[in-house]
């Protein structure tokens, strides 16, 4: 299916259209953060601290007098960047293991599956906390920690697809014209799995963002004054009664971003379904 076809379908389908528009909006905010934000995210103006939202500063200010709107806008960058990075690393690890397990089968498959199941059985946040305790706090560490614990869905999906695909006759046909194993994996099997991987990536992205936010909320992720949404939530939580806007706006953005990716993923799942092929 051509890219133009996919795009046409994506915007013609209500769920994915809304999702795509949200992602587009959030991404443009991230890209144009320097233009959109009225102030730098770490500009402190202690005189104007804890100002409620007004026309001059629409999301209000926090307890250091920093502009919440600017911080939320800059936070978009971190959320998207971290989310994408986590998902990419997850996909790389998970898909790689899934391809090997599904194609070669046998003992290798059993070992990989056992590792996958064990990793999946561990509570991700707790395991990530453990990893961070070992390697220290920080955004890079958060990416590594989350990716390290949440690749199993990719392995499971890819392996399951491989197991059924490799029994299909076109794979036998490919072998009978003398294709090597490597060629069969990357030129015959993988292209058939890519749609599932894309869908899984869009559906995992929100949870990756939520996990990083959670770790930052607990103080293990981005360190101040980095405008991470999770860190902002936890800072705002202390002033929730007197200045609810500090925590509310980052929270709303987290929800919107996660929702956008989920809607897009759901839509893509339907669009990339082979039965619906145009």
């Amino acid at each position: 299916m051509k890219i133009s076809n996919i795009l046409r379908l994506m915007f013609g389908y209500r769920t994915s259209c809304i999702g795509a528009l949200i992602i587009l909006a959030v991404s443009s905010v991230a890209i144009a953060a320097d233009v959109i934000a009225p102030k730098h995210y770490s500009d402190v103006d202690i005189v104007k601290k804890l100002q409620p939202p007004s026309w001059k500063c629409i999301f209000g200010t926090d307890h250091y007098g920093r502009d919440v709107f600017s911080r939320v806008v800059y936070g978009t960058r971190i959320a998207l960047w971290v989310g994408l990075l986590v998902v990419l690393v997850e996909a790389l690890v998970g898909v790689g293991l899934g391809l090997i397990a599904g194609y070669y089968g046998g003992g290798l498959d059993k070992v990989i599956l056992a590792i996958t199941d064990m990793t999946w059985a561990l509570p991700p946040i707790v395991l990530a906390l453990g990893v961070i305790t070992l390697i220290g706090p920080g955004l890079t560490q958060v990416v590594a920690a989350i990716a390290l614990v949440s690749w199993p869905p990719f392995t499971r999906v890819v392996r399951a697809k491989m197991v059924s695909l490799k029994e299909r006759e076109f794979i036998l046909a490919a072998r009978s014209i003398g294709e090597s194993s490597l060629n069969i994996i990357f030129r015959y099997l993988l292209p058939n799995i890519v749609p599932s991987i894309i869908v899984l990536m869009t559906l995992t992205l929100p949870s990756a963002i939520l996990s990083t936010t959670a770790l930052s909320f607990l103080g293990f992720g981005a360190q101040p004054p980095t405008p991470d949404w999770g860190a902002m939530l936890s800072e705002g939580a202390a002033q929730l009664i007197i200045a609810p806007w500090i925590a509310t706006f980052p929270g709303i953005f987290i929800v919107i971003t996660a929702l956008g990716f989920n809607l897009l993923g759901d839509g893509l799942r339907d669009i990339l379904d082979p039965k619906l092929k145009i």
């Binding site: 006759e169 076109f170 036998l172 015959y188 082979p274």
Partner: peptide, 10 residues
Amino acid sequence: FQNPMNSLNP
């Protein structure tokens, strides 16, 4: 092969 429906990569 026997079944041309399945012998081609979709």
